[in-house]
Amino acid sequence: MVKITKQAKIEYLHELMEFVSNNALRHGFSQKKIKEIELVTEEVLMNIISYAYENDAGDIEINCWKDNDKRFITEIVDTGKHFDVLSGKEPDLISDIDEREVGGLGLFFMKQFMDDVQYQREEGKNILTLAVQQD
């Protein structure tokens, strides 16, 4: 398992995403799968950066590994306010330009691209675990 910890700030977004994609690459995942993992990771990280700590400083910790079922696991941990992304609203995919808003796509991308998503609240931590099966 490898780990990175950074402050929950947008200037670290690229570094955190590269950490995840480089590890997925190292474990032999395809470019397509890696981009799908990145799409979901960006949603989760931006949620934490934008909302988890309100005006306080806080960290994001990411742990990556490949499990015995050849799944790439990305575990994203923050100590901000309780937030279960899985309880979020569904996105609007059908309204026209005037009505449409881009919201809820994070959850939608998760359901589309991940093979399993688990959320736990433990000792003041939000722990989101994303699993993607290798092709």
């Binding site: 981009k35 799409l39 949603e43 931006m46 330009i97 881009v102 994070g106 991308f109």
Partner: peptide, 19 residues
């Protein structure tokens, strides 16, 4: 190579502005 929902949001904002 890559567009996230933040990118989609900008595309939508431009479309709304042009209407």
């Amino acid at each position: 190579e890559y567009i996230s929902s933040a990118g989609l949001r900008v595309v939508l904002v431009i479309a709304k502005k042009l209407k």
